[in-house]
Design a binder for these strands. Structure first.
Lengths: 146, 146
DNA sequence: CTGTATCCTCTCTGATACTG
DNA sequence: CAGTATCAGAGAGGATACAG
């Protein structure tokens, strides 16, 4: 068995999976950064809706700079999650879409994003509660220091 | 209807959800950064396994500094995803666990991480293919320039 | 033990300008 | 249209020291 590309799994024996992300120097970390980073997430979720051309995608994901979008897409293409279709016309036309694997990852991400959006009110409530309590603590600490 | 905390949804009319993440100045972006960032993801997935004390969690998530773990946990606590249980003993003992909402988010993240780990071989293969082709292109470009 | 505070580095990011 | 190149700033992230 020639494992030229050793995953860093097979070292622990966890429940099922998700074992090696915790290992410091694991390749899955790097991929996760690409996928779960701010722009990676948004790009993949956007592409879940269908193919996009560069500038269309840029408009869809508001706030991303040309540079970061380009960079993100390159990383995702390298990871085999995004397909880049170049039509050698003038003007050039490039379409980005998800590969089958990209679809699966995108689906997971979309589930996450949907959940976060759904629970946004709850989260904001929690934040306000937290901030209020923090202020309380600060106040009482100041009072006690007299 | 007093919407003191307006979500930036309700502007588009998408399929179902995941509408406002795409808006530039949306609060869901911020939360997503906390949740989906490198340390946020790892912390939440780790806590999926059960409660952890600070240093235990630090050991579990290899490579995280005290500062970043502390910072991450604070953000997640503020978002209402993580519960911080302080026992006023000596030495102090603090346990971190997921709130019900945290469990749900953690589950989604774990699904994502598991998928990435499962497909790690495929991704690595894609990367090698990509790198090989890139090198080809670079070579032929150099050759053509003579 | 569980953090916070500080300093310092270095990457990530974005604005701008330019190429194919 | 679809990017790449370059530069400067902001902020992430880490090492260390110290507090409760």
């Amino acid at each position: 068995m020639d494992r030229t590309a050793p995953t860093c799994a097979a070292e622990t024996e966890m429940d099922e999976l998700a074992a090696d992300v915790f290992a410091g120097a694991c390749p899955s970390r790097e991929i996760l950064d690409n996928v779960a980073g701010r722009w990676g997430t948004l790009a993949l979720v956007a592409l879940t809706e269908g193919a996009y051309r560069f500038n269309a995608l840029r408009r869809r994901v508001q706030g991303v700079s040309e540079k970061m979008l380009s960079q993100t897409l390159q990383a995702l293409e390298r990871d085999g999650l995004v397909h880049r279709d170049v039509q050698a016309t003038i003007p050039p036309r490039v379409e980005y879409s998800l590969t089958p694997l990209g679809e699966r990852v995108g689906a997971k991400l979309r589930a996450l994003v949907d959940l976060v959006e759904e629970e946004l009110p709850a989260v904001r409530a929690a934040q306000e509660r937290y901030d209020r309590e923090k202020r309380q603590v600060a106040v009482s600490a100041t009072a006690a220091r007299t």
